[in-house]
Design a protein around this nucleic acid. Structure first.
Length: 423
RNA sequence: GUGGGUGUAGCUCAGUUGGAUAGAGCACCAGGUUGUGGCCCUGGUGGCCGCGGGUUCAAGUCCCGUCACUCACCCCA
């Protein structure tokens, strides 16, 4: 066999063996969002390119070099969404959701696309669970949004979780802090790596999460943003942390936690996990109070997060967390002889029409082979039909768990299995 | 864009300092007496050894190139 076509770099196939993870996570998401009162929206996978340029930020890496952008046949510049937030904000404004009473609480789930070099826990197409709460500045909603993520991971079986938490300030206080940070770094220019020299001019906040060993002492002594917040941001942050303490949710204030996207203000947070390679964030998000106005709406606060499903699954596997199994038919119908095969087909369809899952043994193979198949498929019961059963108008029902078998009238088929509770 | 690692059966991998028809386990198929699974036994299907070039009497093995995958940096979920 010659493999002529293969999947595109950075994309992956989700095979049957991994499906239980996906169905389990989707089920938990549906339950938890319902519990918290979040409503699902599904924006399209592609939007006009300028939406993302404005929404994500012109100078971010995502916009500068990671977007899947193209012209359609009408020459309209389009882009496969690199994240959810911009599209959800567009959806919110265009459909008049901003006229609803606040907060408007929304979630989405689906693929996003970024042209990056793939590595462990990072793909060019990955799936995000995305939550947004719009129109509310109360720090209690920061807590609520974070708790959606928290509860999801907890119900999937994760333990010992802690939020990484920080505030990135607002347009009032952040620029002052950035100036302080830059001034500090200029005094230490000779001690930092080349990348940091570049960051100093392009994206100063990123200086704080450089991983080069030589830069660590400089980072450790750098000015800390939490000491440079304006009174409003400071109050917001301390209220949030007091709520977290009140609930007994562990959190770690991480002065080095910054977001790569321009729109974040005040609260930023991540949840870290093991088993996803050098990537540690299973979830990342924060507050973006200026974004909606920037996209043409009225000034509206907002907060949200994105969580990568593939990373959740990687981490579940790493930690040995198993999903619920998917339902599968427990009955296989085996047969020997052409009259028996016709009867077998009828039995399979009769079972299914009564909501009882059943599998047909295809082809004309030995009973032994069909029994092996039943075992492989994890069937609990095999119905055997051969010449004798056809003549006697009966069915042989074998229980694979204990090996017992009995012969029942063919007419009693449905009654028999309803009584067994196998449907 | 930069660096490291790896390319042998559907999957996980052996393959000794270059040497004969390229192997194992798993998976798949068949058989192990009349119409019956799991365990076990036997047999079978399945590989341009990533691709191209070079060195050599001889290349899966050595050299060069190339592509792919992978991990890490950058950045991010």
């Amino acid at each position: 066999m010659e493999i002529r076509y293969k999947s595109v770099s950075g994309t992956r196939d989700v095979l049957p063996e991994e499906q239980p993870y996906w169905r389990f996570i989707e089920k938990k998401i549906a339950e938890i969002t319902a519990l918290f009162g979040y409503q699902r929206v599904d924006p399209p996978i592609f939007e006009e390119t300028p939406l993302f340029i404005r929404g994500v930020g012109e100078t971010t890496d995502i916009v500068e070099k990671e977007m899947y952008s193209f012209l359609d046949k009408g020459k309209t510049p389009l882009t496969l969404r690199p994240e959810f937030t911009a599209g959800v904000m567009r959806l919110y404004l265009q459909n008049g959701l901003h006229m609803l009473s606040k907060p408007v609480k929304l979630y989405s789930i689906g693929p996003v696309f970024r042209f990056e070099r793939p590595q462990a826990g990072r793909f060019r197409q990955h799936t995000q669970f995305n939550v947004e709460a719009l129109g509310e500045q109360d720090p209690a909603i920061d807590l609520e949004v974070m708790s959606v993520a928290w509860q999801l991971y907890a119900e999937l079986g994760f333990s010992d979780l802690a939020f990484q938490l920080n505030s990135t300030g607002c347009p009032q206080c952040r620029p002052l802090y950035i100036e302080r940070l830059k001034a500090y770094y200029r005094e230490h220019l000779h001690e930092i790596c080349e990348d940091c020299k570049r960051r100093l001019e392009r994206n100063a906040l990123r200086l704080l999460d450089c991983k080069v060993a030589g830069c660590q002492p400089v980072i450790a002594a750098a000015p800390v943003i939490s000491e440079h917040l304006c009174p409003e941001c400071d109050n917001h942050f301390s209220a949030l942390t007091s709520y977290l303490r009140g609930l007994g949710k562990p959190y770690i204030i991480n002065h080095k936690l910054v977001r790569g996207l321009d729109y974040y203000t005040k609260t930023v947070f991540e949840v870290w996990a093991k088993g996803i390679g050098a990537q540690n964030a299973m979830c990342g998000g924060g507050r973006y109070d200026g974004l909606i106005e920037q996209l043409g709406g009225d000034p509206t606060p907002g907060i949200g997060f994105g969580s990568g499903i593939e990373r959740i699954i990687l981490s579940m596997k790493e930690q040995g967390l198993t999903p619920e199994p998917l339902p599968a038919p427990r009955i296989l119908v085996a047969h020997a002889g052409s009259a028996a095969k016709t009867a077998a087909i009828e039995v399979v369809f009769r079972l299914r029409s009564h909501g009882i899952g059943a599998l047909m043994a295809f082809g004309e193979r030995s009973l032994k082979s069909q029994m092996r198949e039943a075992n492989r498929l994890n069937a609990g019961v095999v119905i055997i039909i051969a010449e004798h059963e056809v003549e006697a108008q009966t069915l042989t029902v074998k229980n694979l768990t204990d090996g017992s078998q009995e012969e029942i009238p063919a007419a009693d088929l449905i009654l028999h299995f309803k009584t067994l509770g196998l449907h």
